[in-house]
Every structure is written in C-alpha cells, then in structure tokens.
Design a binder for these strands. Sequence first.
DNA 1: GTTGACGATGACCAGGTGGTCACCGTAAGA
DNA 2: TCTTACGGTGACCACCTGGTCATCGTCAAC
Lengths: 225, 225
Amino acid sequence: MSASKTFFQLDQAKQQAVVDTALSEFSEHGFHQASTNRMAQVLGIAKGSFFKYFGNKEGLFRYVFEHCKDLFSAPLRSIRAQTQGKDFFTRVEQSLLAGLAFIQRHPRVYRLYIKMLHQERFPLRETLLAEVRAASAKYLRSLVREAQANQELRPGLDQDAVVFFLDAVMDRFLLAHTLAFMDADLGLFQADQETTRHHLAQLMAIIRHGLADDGGTPFEETPHA
Amino acid sequence: MSASKTFFQLDQAKQQAVVDTALSEFSEHGFHQASTNRMAQVLGIAKGSFFKYFGNKEGLFRYVFEHCKDLFSAPLRSIRAQTQGKDFFTRVEQSLLAGLAFIQRHPRVYRLYIKMLHQERFPLRETLLAEVRAASAKYLRSLVREAQANQELRPGLDQDAVVFFLDAVMDRFLLAHTLAFMDADLGLFQADQETTRHHLAQLMAIIRHGLADDGGTPFEETPHA
DNA sequence: GTTGACGATGACCAGGTGGTCACCGTAAGA
DNA sequence: TCTTACGGTGACCACCTGGTCATCGTCAAC
C-alpha cells in the first residue's frame, strides 16, 4: 500500500479524481516529464496534498500503477476462461480481440505500459514490468503448451520460438492501433472495426500457415546438431 | 545544415568528439532528459560553445541525427544490392543478419532510434522518423513485390499484410537483442552469435511456412469479397 | 467558549535546466 | 607594438522541478 490513511479517508469521488488525473499525466509524459505542479493545478488542490497522500512522486506512481494492474488482470483471466476448449488459433484470435477491446476501454493504461517499456529510468521499472510481462507470457505459453499437447502445431517447433513469434506479431498488431509509426502503411492506426477485422483475418491466415500442423512440410528441414 | 561555420572550422577530432558525446547523451536519455551541462562537462568544454556551434539544443540534436542517418543508409543500400537475385527468404534472413551487424557496430544509433519511436515530444519527431521508416518500409515492400512477381509467395496474400507481418517479426527480433523486456524468455538479449543463429533459423522456418507458396493450402481459404 | 486534532495550503527551498553575453586569450597582419 | 578578429569561457538569467513545513480553517468534544 503506497498511500497514507489520509488519502483513503477522502471521499471516493476525490480519490478517483486524483488517480484519474495522475494516470493522464503519467501516461502522457512518462515519469520524469510528469509534473506534480500540473496535476495539482488540474485537480484544483495544493501540491502539498500529494506528498501528504503518497509521500513522494514515486509513491503516487506506484499507487496509479497498482490501480492499472487491477484493471488489467481481470480481463486476462476472463479471456482465458472464455476460450477454454476452443482450437489454438481461435484462442489466439480472440485474445487479440480482447486486447483491442481493453485498449479501447483503457487507452491511457495501455499508453502507460508502452511508456514504461520504452523509457528507462522509470521507478521500479524492472520489478513492475516483470510482473506484467510474466503474466502475459505465462498466458501465451500455456496456450502454446496445450496446443502442442493437442497436436495442433507442427511437430519440431520450439515452444520458446513459438511464444516469441506470437508475442512479436500480437504485440505489434495492438501497438499499430495506438502508435502511428508502428503501422507499416496498413492503416491499423485508430482503424475502424471493419478494417481491423479484415487485417486480423489476413494476419491469422499467415500465423496459421506458419505454425499449424499440415501433415508434412514442403521444404527441406533446416537441420540442427 | 544545422551547425554554424564555426563548428566546421574546428579540427576533425574535436568535431567528432562533440558528435560522439552528444550521441551518447541523446541515446541514453532521449531529448528532454539529455543535459547540455553534462555533455559540456564530459567534453571538457564550456557549455556556451554548444550554442555557438548549433544555436540551441534542438540544432545539436538535428546534427547528431543527420550523422546517424548517414551511417544508416549506406548498409541498407548495400544489403539490398548484395542479395539481389537470391530467393526471398534468404534475402529476409540476410537482412536480419545485416540489421544485427549494424546494431552491434552502432548500438547507440539503434538506441536513439528506439528512443525516438517511443518517446513523444521529440523535436521533429514526425519528420525525422518518417524519413527512416519510409526508407525501411520501402525496402521491405520492394522485397515482397519481387517475391510475388517470382511466385515465391502464396497466392492471395495481401502485400500490405505481408509487409506488416515481416516488419513486426523482424523489428522484434532486433529489439530483443537490445531490450531485455522484449525478449520473451528466448534468451536473445545480448545473445552470442550461436544462440542468435539458432533462433533465427527457427524463426525463419515459421516465416517460410507462413508465407511461402507450398502449392496448396491445407486449410479452407478465408474468403474476402 | 475553549481546546485539540488534523487535513489543506502555498510560499519557500535547493537544485537543475536551456540559453545569454560581456569578457578573455590568442594569433595573424600591419 | 598595436590592432583586429574570433573562438572559448563560465558567471549569470529566468524558469521549472520535487519536496518541505509553518500556518490556517474547520469541526467535534468537552
């Protein structure tokens, strides 16, 4: 718990306003460029209050991050449960759709995550990111493991390589909707639902061919050892 | 030209030292967190000199960026020429190896590029990044176009989708060597050459299956229009 | 009416920032 | 030796930062 009891005795509306403003500031400016002066001004409270509530800027950030993590973990659990029993590629596709839905509902949370990934010198960066990445990697890995058990994937595929591959493509697909420069002229950036669905289908076809067990590979195997 | 004639009249060693120090600072801290005070101290010159040379911090950055762009464009041209005539997937693989070689030779240039991609509020961010992204996207697109002309790719694949897919996987493969968090437990981060080659082979196998024309797809085609 | 508890306040602090400019040292030309 | 030109210098400026704390206002208890 990174907030003092003073903060929790505030009425709910004010607590929420503080977290909301801080999330906007951090997701927009990262940590160091975020300004407590600006936040205080936006909220219409004295700057000193922040330091009463959270000790320092880092404490404020920790609290905001905890809040985001809560928002994040619920959908992750739910999508896994929802797709239980479906085939691997359907699960991957639905996970992507769930990711998109989350980003649309919580754009600032996603931007904060991106900022943390790519901005060194965030407080607790290693610790906090490790938690998030571990959760999503674990999820992806469990999907792959089950798929391999069901012989849905081409034999001989390295589990780590598959996870890496999927992580790369999925991550980028989500990123392209948020950052214009990550969209290689595809038109995914802030795309409407129809465009997104179209490109998702194309992408899933490539992924399927890349990973699925088609009962015999047309290429010479690349030998190892 | 973002530097004054004063700067160009300096002896080469000093010019180089200035660019070198600035590149280190910018690639490590981004733009706003980079400090001209620190650079001056490292170089052992007065801070005022920077402003004589480049007008302001942004001018200094522009000059450093131009320098990096020159370093970047030569290898891109050369790798394209070197792989002319080879098959598509070999070209992709060699491009990745060339990218890795570049990153190893110029790690700070690559880090600066990453910083610019993921840190808003960089001066001239849109303009400068557009140049770089356009160059590399154009390269990738030309590879894909030629491959499609040679019927190396599965028919019906959307060119944009293929470019997007390749960009995603290749980008992430390079990133994983530089940023620990982008390496989904694969062990690519600062990996030795052997590890890298091993994982590259795995990845290329997946890409091949995903894109190559294998003379008949085992799945129902996902119909469009 | 008096007291005590406590959250809110914002002037204030030290420290860092990008940027300026009057001054200095030097070296070439007369 | 005097003049001129010019790059180098670092004290200085205004501004912004995270963080502090003496003071104030309010409200409940007695």
